[in-house]
Design a protein around this nucleic acid. Sequence first.
DNA 1: TTGATTGCAAAGTGTTTGCAACTAG
DNA 2: CTAGTTGCAAACACTTTGCAATCAA
Lengths: 140, 140
Amino acid sequence: MPSPTTSNPAAAGERSTRQKRALAQALDETGEFRSAQSIHASLRAGGERVGLTTVYNQLRALADAGSLDTFRSPEGETLYRRCRTEQHHHHIVCRRCGRTVEIEDDAVESWAASVAKRAGFTEVEHTVEIMGLCRDCRRT
Amino acid sequence: MPSPTTSNPAAAGERSTRQKRALAQALDETGEFRSAQSIHASLRAGGERVGLTTVYNQLRALADAGSLDTFRSPEGETLYRRCRTEQHHHHIVCRRCGRTVEIEDDAVESWAASVAKRAGFTEVEHTVEIMGLCRDCRRT
DNA sequence: TTGATTGCAAAGTGTTTGCAACTAG
DNA sequence: CTAGTTGCAAACACTTTGCAATCAA
């Protein structure tokens, strides 16, 4: 999306609600990737009264705003995690257990940029998916 | 009678049907990752009479048997591709007109390999999508 | 013949949306 | 007040399953 980014991060009327706070806390507690369903279950288990729809709505909003990293598990769930690095980055995903490792390496970034430029493309953006077997899943 | 070690994967009564053949051909034609829905649509468009259920059934069977690689798209679809050992190439896609340019550059290949190795992953494979505006679509 | 295969219809997932009630500012 | 939020219920998209009809060997 060639977004003319007219969106101010700390945008207009954005309220602080009990639900949002609970969700934010849940995300901070476990820095790992978690599914909406799982987060919702935890909140409920913890006594928080939050609707599943709200969890979905908020997670998507946060992800769209760039505050959360997302990735699809092999089982088909969308997993969310608080962003750790501000910069654009990629992940390696274990195709067996779904475990992910973050990649912070500018090499691809510049590679993609130069390759695109050479082909005459502008306003470039890219996605990279690396899959493999992690150490633990290596033998079986 | 001595039980013959039933360890042959491609064993028992497996039939050759029109549908299976069509599906196999579709998979061979485009060596890229494709969704079940997309494959089914192509088959239908090509005049083949194949049920969506059958496409799903066969793709899953083939994947379980290890004949197909699978991977989840960010949109939530399961993508299938015939297994292969040979390296693949990538494309840059114009997000406006859809024109694609082939990328021939091993840089990413080795980058992906080294990054994966550093993270302790094996049997690695990757996909790269670069999108942008091609020369012709640059100015509106 | 006979068991593998097909594919319609229906059931299941995870996720999104319509929208009336609710609430922070 | 009033626009941002909530969450139930219903809609959705993708995938799987039940099962009777079909068909390859």
